[in-house]
């Protein structure tokens, strides 16, 4: 590694073993390639180089090449990783084995089908659910949410749906109906969101035979996650919340500092329903502070907040 005497980066030839699959014949085989790698060469770079120079039949999925899109999840040296964020030389082995992500149906070579995975994500309703029908069906503005509340869920919002956790999970490996770490982690993200009121609806899927109770905290999902989302933590927090609810703990008190879009008169769309905010003084205090904070960088938002403040203090 490092620099050669001639001033060029040192290179090393790495043997790459790819587990290939042909859906037309049903044949599955290992194929070997040799690729010259230098510091910084990622597995995805190597695969693209193979595709361009050695074997154009090799199929893989990728998009952004920078760990943001979550398309290139693969089993690299038996560990689920993003091909674009794994450097060949950092793996430290002379032979690098690349397989499609397990627990997903293989379409061809390294390409897997995410249909089930996305369906399970949809099942837990990954969006804000309000009790008011109007707010659900005619949203026209964003909700306001205090930063400290955002900090509680932002970790889970970083999920890029790459499927590495789903491939690593030992329960997904046997139970095909299990929602999996991604969906359950997201379920926690949405039920913790102070703007959300859909806990009861989500419980239908989460509190099921193949829902949250099938997790046994093997922790492999978190160990595999490339974005630090930590689904294992989310699932345990979701479960302890459910245990407390079942044991008869009082339901979490309604957040008093969330402003819904229908309370913000920005565009004229008719009368707004009554604010869902109960404790006005907390909201007023919070909005004032937020407006002050935003004054410098986002003056128009600060102005909108002040307009809103005026409407709720005058009524």
């Amino acid at each position: 590694m490092g620099i050669n005497a001639n001033g060029r980066p040192a290179t090393r030839v790495v043997k790459i073993r790819v587990r290939r699959y042909d859906p037309e014949t049903g044949r599955r085989w290992w194929q070997e390639y040799r690729v010259e790698a230098k510091k910084g060469t990622t597995v995805l770079d190597a695969l693209l180089k193979i595709k361009a120079e050695q074997d154009h039949t090799l199929a893989m999925r990728y998009s952004c090449r920078m760990g943001a899109c979550g398309s290139c999840g693969m089993l690299i040296n038996k560990m689920p990783r993003l091909a674009c964020e794994t450097q060949l030389l950092e793996l430290g082995t002379d032979t690098v084995t690349i397989e499609p992500l397990p627990n997903f149906p293989v379409l061809r070579d390294l390409i897997t089908d995410f249909g089930d995975f996305f369906k399970k994500h949809r099942d837990i309703m990954p969006y804000i659910v309000r009790e008011s029908k109007k707010e659900n069906e005619e949203p026209y503005r964003e909700y306001y949410m205090p930063p400290d509340e955002l900090n509680k869920i932002i970790r889970y919002s970083y999920c890029i749906m790459c499927g590495l956790c789903y491939a690593a999970c030992p329960v997904v490996a046997i139970d095909k109906k299990f929602l999996g770490p991604q969906a359950l982690g997201q379920a926690y993200r949405w039920v913790t969101d102070v703007r959300d009121e859909g806990l009861r609806l989500r419980l239908e899927k989460v509190d099921d035979k193949h829902g949250v109770w099938r997790c046994h905290f093997a922790g492999s999902c978190s160990a595999a996650c490339p974005k630090g989302v930590d689904p294992a933590q989310g699932i345990q927090l979701l479960r302890s919340k459910l245990v407390a609810l079942t044991a008869g703990a009082r339901r979490d008190k309604k957040p008093t500092h969330v402003a819904t879009p229908t309370t913000v008169r920005y565009v004229d769309v008719g009368d707004a329903p009554k604010p869902t905010v109960e404790d006005k003084s907390l909201l007023v205090k919070h909005l004032e502070e937020t407006a002050q904070e935003l004054e410098q960088d986002l003056p128009y938002v600060a102005q909108a907040l002040r307009d809103y403040l005026r409407t709720i203090t005058s009524s």
């Binding site: 509190d207 829902g211 109770w213 459910l242 245990v243 609810l245 079942t246 044991a247």
Partner: peptide, 11 residues
């Protein structure tokens, strides 16, 4: 019974 009840019993 509901799954959550069963698992509360389990714990």
């Amino acid at each position: 019974p509901r799954e959550s009840t069963l698992h509360l019993l389990l714990y």
